[in-house]
């Protein structure tokens, strides 16, 4: 097992990337096998009254007449060359069909992360500092309520509050027309991003609060205070780096979950992201699109978890020096 150690942080990342590729390979097998259950694509395209001749011809055209193993490696080879196949529903390359949707979802997730992470870290830390005082009680309960509300309820409440009945500040739906980009319509992004921030913030701030409380009770924080350090130094230099490690993991899991496409939110706002794309593709038996999206979502999980692990190691010398 010697090859699993050494090489410092670069060695660690290399090993994790190789491991990630292995995970992606296993995921590809599972995705391929499970999408076979969606039925015969040729039949899906031609409909119920297809003649056996045309069916056979189309199967040949789609490479469906070769063995399953052959089909799998053909598909996998395509992915490795950046060719995700052709959408059955639109007869266009999958990359072209999904490109805009992926960009839209990415914009949503990145914006949600940019707003939710600092805010929830700040709320969680401050609640820990003011433990069992007013701010802590209020924020902890509010976060609990928000965590308990399903996302679509939050979305609908926001629409009622900001776009319709109470105030009319923002558009209630965010349909990004084909050929344009989500960032061309900043006002349309506010509501979906706000919903996602509210969906993520409770988890991150609660883990931040718990982690910070533990660190504030630690001997080294007491020692830092007994050394006469200013409270700011105690918190920022001594407490925060130790408290944030576990938080990275929770952030990664939450963002990956968002990246997987919060179908309900996209549906409420009529936002063309990958969540809705996946639903459409499954309904249409558009197997190449389903496969591509499944692989993409898996890749996001792998990458975000890798990033979280690297971040945790960077703030934890005990782990870093062992590499």
């Amino acid at each position: 097992m010697k090859f699993l150690r050494g090489g410092g942080i670069a060695g660690f990342i290399t090993r994790r990337v190789l491991l990630g590729l292995l995970v992606m390979f296993l995921v590809s097998v599972i995705v391929f096998v499970s999408t076979q259950l969606l039925g015969d694509p040729a039949r899906a395209i031609l409909g119920r009254d297809a003649t056996p001749d045309r069916l056979a011809a189309l199967q040949k055209q789609l490479n469906l007449d070769s063995s399953k193993v052959g089909q799998y490696f053909h598909w996998l080879g395509g992915i490795l060359h950046g060719d995700l196949g052709t959408s059955l529903a639109s007869s266009q390359p999958v990359t072209q069909v999904l490109g805009a949707r992926i960009a839209n979802s990415a914009v949503l997730v990145v914006l949600a992360a940019i707003f939710s992470v600092p805010v929830s870290i700040a709320i969680g830390s401050y609640a820990a500092l003011r433990r069992e005082k007013l701010f802590d009680t209020l924020s902890s309960n509010l976060m609990l309520v928000l965590a308990a509300l399903p996302e679509f309820v939050v979305a609908v409440l926001l629409v009622i509050l900001l776009s319709t009945n109470v105030l009319h500040l923002l558009p209630a739906i965010s349909p990004v027309p084909p050929g344009t980009h989500a960032w061309d319509y900043p006002d349309e992004l506010v509501m979906p991003v706000a919903t996602l921030v509210i969906a993520v913030a409770p988890y991150v701030s609660r883990i931040m609060r718990a982690s910070m409380i533990e660190v504030l009770e630690s001997d080294y924080v007491e020692m830092a205070r007994l050394k006469g350090l200013p409270e700011r130094t105690v918190l920022i230099r001594h407490a925060l780096p130790n408290a944030i490690g576990p938080v990275f993991q929770v952030i990664a899991i939450n963002l990956a979950y968002l990246a997987g496409g919060v179908v309900v939110i996209e549906s409420v706002f009529n936002y063309p992201g990958i969540g809705l794309g996946l639903v459409d593709a499954v309904t249409n038996h558009d197997i190449p699109v389903v496969q591509a999206l499944a692989m993409l979502i898996a890749a996001v999980y792998v990458v975000l978890n890798l990033l979280a692990d690297v971040a945790t190691i960077l703030v934890t010398p005990r782990l870093r020096t062992r590499l």
């Binding site: 080294y220 230099r237 001594h238 130790n242 934890t316 010398p317």
Partner: peptide
């Protein structure tokens, strides 16, 4: 436990 594990 009294020395900060994250600081040199």
């Amino acid at each position: 436990s009294s020395l900060n594990p994250a600081l040199r």
